[in-house]
Design a protein around this nucleic acid. Sequence first.
DNA 1: TGGGAAATGATGGGGGTCAATGGGATTTGA
DNA 2: TCAAATCCCATTGACCCCCATCATTTCCCA
Lengths: 167, 167
Amino acid sequence: MLFTGTHIHKLDRKGRVSVPKRFRAALDNEEFAGIYLYQSHKESALEGCSHSHMERIAASLDELDMFSDEADDLADTILGSSHMLPYDGEGRIILPAELIEFARIEDQVAFVGRGRTFRLWNPDIFKPLQEASRTRTLNRGATLKLKPMTELPKGARPGTANEEDAS
Amino acid sequence: MLFTGTHIHKLDRKGRVSVPKRFRAALDNEEFAGIYLYQSHKESALEGCSHSHMERIAASLDELDMFSDEADDLADTILGSSHMLPYDGEGRIILPAELIEFARIEDQVAFVGRGRTFRLWNPDIFKPLQEASRTRTLNRGATLKLKPMTELPKGARPGTANEEDAS
DNA sequence: TGGGAAATGATGGGGGTCAATGGGATTTGA
DNA sequence: TCAAATCCCATTGACCCCCATCATTTCCCA
């Protein structure tokens, strides 16, 4: 259950695009066979996630004061503008025209893994940005402090696999 | 059981509007085949929810001091002014004139998902407000602290689906 | 280790199905 | 008895199922 790598697929003339096999595999035990997409806040890209991740967002919003302005804004921006997209028999989704336009996608789509979530880009827009962020990271000498293994959920550690993690 | 996305449907000359298939699906095993609507207290919109959510509101009101002004007001605003609207054979409801007027709805209705609940808007009114929400969210740099997976209800996590989730 | 066969994932497109809509007919209730 | 609500059926257009083809990768065996 982890989205990694960049996969470029074709958008056909019916507005369909194949979800990468690797991503579909990461979503295997979901109750909903498909993905959720919504417009990114900061980038000219689409945010993608699973049904259970969307449940998590809804549950977290539930905890904020039911009448707070911030919860309202987030609900409108994320839940209200998200698209629930089921696979067809071949593992493709139909990319809604609104999202194609927002992300300025033409005939190709880049699926970019970000761990628990992923993004969809016009590859021509993503590539220079990726190089820029790579340079920034190097210059900054950024390091990532890793969580101790023992704090990870069971199944994410070697030797703790259970039957659901057969992949 | 999650309301997501924005769905724009037509209000016909008989005052009927189709409830989006996705929303009806989210309400599948409810005992009442229909939805509840009441006037939003802060927006020019209608709040919508399921029968079981209405039960939840009633239960929460029970916990407030029975004779407090606040409980009185909430009971009047929500329970007193709510409309229980059954589907017709095609999954449509009849929007009461009172609610059409309150939400300034004309010939189109936007169903906007908010997780456990949803809202109904005049699309022309909702659209600019949603844009504003997006901008505020961006400026605020709002991030949502996600609940840990383990606290989610069973069925909202991968690998815990039960037979009722066969969809 | 090279080459061919088989399996699998990605792509293209036709056509049937169903959700959304419109409107007439029938029933219900005041 | 009239008006409003409900039932019923027709239409249409978008979506989804199905199959065919193509491109890779994997596998197998000489």
